[in-house]
Design a protein around this nucleic acid. Structure first.
Lengths: 344, 344
DNA sequence: CTGAAAGCGCTTACAG
DNA sequence: CTGAAAGCGCTTACAG
């Protein structure tokens, strides 16, 4: 692709050889210093460090990877329907968190978005042929074809959220969805609500399933019966939240609260409630999930359940690096927290 | 980092050598096929392609990069204040578009987020030492320290939006902000509005500056005077839109329209208008900018100016690849389009 | 603790 | 059109 004639002459960066010469020492020893300085005399170490600084040396990762057979890079693989990615601030948090956590280990993040079949194929080939050491998988929907592929290739993988419907377990990191839902619904009950509805997430995602169980459990514990008319399935989008709320209002006009499985949907529900002339929280209390940026800016501001995105992304990276290093897999569940604002 | 004892034995992928043996031909010829098949006999080409398929060969990019001195990868560098990144769907579109456009060239995208000084330093070192061939820069605020660094290192760079305040020009791709603003304001004028306010973007961003000029120009052309009380500066956030609208309402209670420089801010403005008891579009018409996902879901749905994100990202990639290939730089301005919905 | 040397998997003049 | 060979910049046993 490069046309050597036209390319501006960028000077070649210094190599380990330049450093060795500068330090008056062999290249092997320079490399040893780079690897952590074991088995290197203090004087040699000093000389090398000085030479590195003087020459401005930075390791050539391609050369290193070629011999170590490691890429020292990680893929962030997104297989969600793309529109959610644009709308949902959670993805931004996750991406930001993972990038930052990886940066601390000097590991670049390769972003891969598998929307089409063609993309899936290409990405599969790329990942399984050793170009990355592991993958951070963001795809909560069950039946994802990539998961199997990655497993077969024995790729280190950690998922965000428990992957559903896969026999062999992929390690994952997730907030405690069920407990979070219980927290929110308990709050609704405690503030006197009795006809508590819910707009769930998609029921082929763990957030959809587990938040619904938390809701049902807490209702049962509170001695409130389970009424199917109070439950509709959403899709995590704002529009889906609006539509879900309208359906609920039609099915169960006497509802006095809704637990909505995401803030974005809750924001949509707020709009629907507003159009229906129901005041929040007076007529109906609304609870969300995520504590994303929309929660604070919604009118009224949303009472919600906080997902600890920073910790989630940090743990994802930690678990993945462990896996890459050959340590045994682990999944981690992080606690959530009720955030009280105005809507409930 | 890797502990060889514990790592599951992943089989080494086939190399060019395996392909050569399988095809009964030298490694040099295999490589030539990989480079496009020039100077290769039809039979050799066939044999190699068959051998590649049979062995499942995929090129080792590290080895290739080591000799070509190209990384065949590109950085997507974000230097915006991070909160905007989470909230603003535009970033998602841009990221998605760039990833897809690069994927067609088999070029992975490295995501880098320069929030802190420390991150900037690390990223600067990483980028300028040849680990990427070029950078897609997303940072509209002026006075960005990374820009200079990249220029000094002679890194191919293309910015999203015209970089402000840099002597030497960085090629960029942007929507026609001024014309877009004119389109929207003309529409407001045409529908009979006379006291047209604006909430601008930050005035150290091109979108802030240029959309404001478009607004002023069109007002002048319509013979409506310029009234400073009708102008407030925003920050592209939803909360900023709300606050801006409140200020406007206080400064100029008789306003009958607002042109808001982003959909997200417009959504915030809508909320403020609602709280103030002004109906939209009856009492005040509201126009946004972006045509992002919030525009369609806002209540009422926003009349806005469409930014062609798909084209923007496609052009950014095209221009960057041209630059990398040593072709001369170019900046491109893409037309915008008025999208009429309910708010104006 | 250190140096010399092999080798990671490719590309690319260079001969032929 | 093709093969043999050098070399990209590193790491890592292997001797010493």
């Amino acid at each position: 692709m490069t046309d050597p004639e036209a390319t501006p002459a960028r000077r070649r960066p210094p190599t380990i050889h330049d450093v060795a010469r500068e330090a008056g020492i062999s290249r092997g020893t320079v490399s040893r210093v780079l690897q952590g300085g074991h088995n290197v005399s203090p004087e040699a170490l000093k000389a090398v460090n000085a030479a590195i600084k003087k020459t401005g040396y930075v390791v050539n990762r391609h050369a290193r990877s070629l011999v170590t057979q490691r890429s020292d890079s990680v893929a962030f693989l997104l297989t969600e329907p793309q529109d959610r990615f644009f709308e949902d601030p959670n993805f931004g948090h996750l991406l930001r968190g993972c990038t930052a956590a990886l940066a601390e280990h000097d590991i670049p993040l390769l972003l891969m978005i598998a929307g089409t079949e063609e993309e899936r194929r290409r990405i599969g080939r790329y990942i399984t042929s050793g170009h990355v050491d592991g993958v951070l998988l963001v795809s909560s929907h069950s039946g994802n074809p990539m998961v199997e592929l990655l497993q077969q290739a024995q790729m280190p993988v950690v998922a965000c959220g428990k992957p559903l419907g896969h026999a062999t377990a992929t390690p994952y990191v997730a907030a405690d969805d069920r407990e979070g839902a219980r927290l929110l619904v308990r709050h609704l009950v405690a503030t006197g609500r009795r006809r508590i509805a819910t707009i769930t997430g998609p029921l082929d995602t763990p957030g959809g399933v587990d938040r619904l169980s938390g809701y049902r459990e807490m209702l049962a514990e509170a001695g409130l019966g389970y009424d199917p008319a109070l439950v509709v399935e959403g899709d995590y989008s704002r529009a889906g939240g609006s539509a879900g709320m309208e359906r609920l209002l039609a099915q169960a006009p006497d509802l006095d609260a809704v637990f909505v499985a995401s803030d974005l949907m809750a924001d949509g529900a707020l709009a629907a409630l507003d159009r229906a002339g129901r005041s929040v929280p007076h007529d109906v209390a609304v609870g969300g999930f995520d504590d994303s940026t929309v929660a604070a800016s919604a009118r009224p501001a949303l009472t919600t359940v906080r997902q600890p995105w920073e910790r989630i992304s940090g743990e994802m990276v930690r678990v993945l690096l462990d896996l890459i290093a050959g340590r045994p897999p682990a999944s981690v569940i992080l606690p959530t927290e009720l955030v009280r604002r105005e809507s409930a």
